[in-house]
Computed example of a mutant assay.
Amino acid sequence: MLNRLNGAIATVLVIAAWVAGGQSAWAVRSQNYTPDQFVSVLFGFGYPVTPGTPLIDVRVQQAIRDFQTQYRLPVDGTLNAPTQDKAASLVSDLQTNLNRAMQPSPQLPGSQFYGAQTKNAVALFQRQNKLPETGIATLETYQRLQDIISDAIPLPGQPTTPIAPTAPPVSSVPIGTLYNETDFRAVLLGLGYDVNPAKPLNDAPAVRAIRDFQQRYGLSETGRADQPTQEKAAIVVRNLRNNLKTVLRNNLSIFPFYDDVTQASVRQFQTQAGLRVDGIATQTVRAQLDATARRVR
């Protein structure tokens, strides 16, 4: 009898822990997004969509897929549960950090919605920090906000001497709305730039590579993976994948990441074109691919 009772108690405790875990995982998203609300989130984080555009719009569909790919979510172009949960978490974290950095009154609610209050708070933060006042959480805005937070603004009741946060692994550090460090390093390597895959993007060879990329495409030579640089890289990789899809007549999806499939497709083109087969889309390879794609079209 005692064993049965202990077993029942254990079962109840396990169920209670599972429920508590589930509640915490779903706590940020209080409800499903409407299409307009989710498009506002995408717009607020810098994806190239226009508020009020329907979900069936091709640009919105691509933005959702890019969002899902960036955050390693199921990629189907729909507002599936993991996609909504991730969006809710990102907006809530942004609002929380703005509250810590700015102490607005009233404070942002820490909700899942990127509405007028959040947009105005982002714009005010940008104005105060001499950034372009867009109300969009751009890379520069995100980096400045993180700088302020990491400079140890204490929460109420916490000691004023900050405890240095544990830095995430270099390979997973988010650097903007399109890429994290791993993703952007893969783009540089895939396009033929000389960077060390084990080093962060502030490593001297990586800084030189980024400056070379920026110079080639007429960007400000900051040596950082800033938002204009990321956006140009995304265009280059999308164009590369589109040309590969045209020339190889495969079903390659058009997104801005240089993954194993991209590398394999580049190898296939290099083999067909009699080029050195290494899976690296240098400027020479891309130029020949572009010329071939034009003839095919």
Rank of each mutant, 00 (worst) to 15 (best):
R238G: 06
V19H: 10
A281M: 04
Q23N: 13
Q283G: 09
A17L: 15
I210Y: 02
V60H: 05
Q62F: 00
Y114R: 07
I148P: 01
G115H: 04
K130W: 07
A10D: 13
V170F: 00
Q31K: 15
L42C: 04
P159I: 06
Y47P: 00
R72V: 15
N80G: 13
P109M: 05
Q215K: 15
N202K: 02
D57A: 14
E181S: 03
N3W: 12
T141C: 06
T118G: 03
A123R: 10
I56R: 14
V296H: 13
T177G: 15
L55H: 11
T134D: 04
D212C: 02
V41A: 02
V60G: 00
P168C: 05
L94K: 04
A281V: 06
Q270K: 11
G52I: 12
Q270Y: 06
E221D: 05
V277Q: 10
F269N: 07
L201S: 00
L289I: 09
N180W: 02
D85I: 11
Q117T: 15
Q23W: 14
R211C: 02
R238E: 12
V12A: 14
R267F: 00
T177Q: 13
R185K: 15
P132W: 10
L131W: 11
R286W: 03
A291T: 10
A152F: 09
I254S: 02
L219R: 06
P109T: 14
R144I: 08
D147N: 10
I136G: 04
K86L: 08
Q158R: 11
P82S: 06
R249S: 13
Q263F: 03
K119R: 15
P200T: 03
N196D: 15
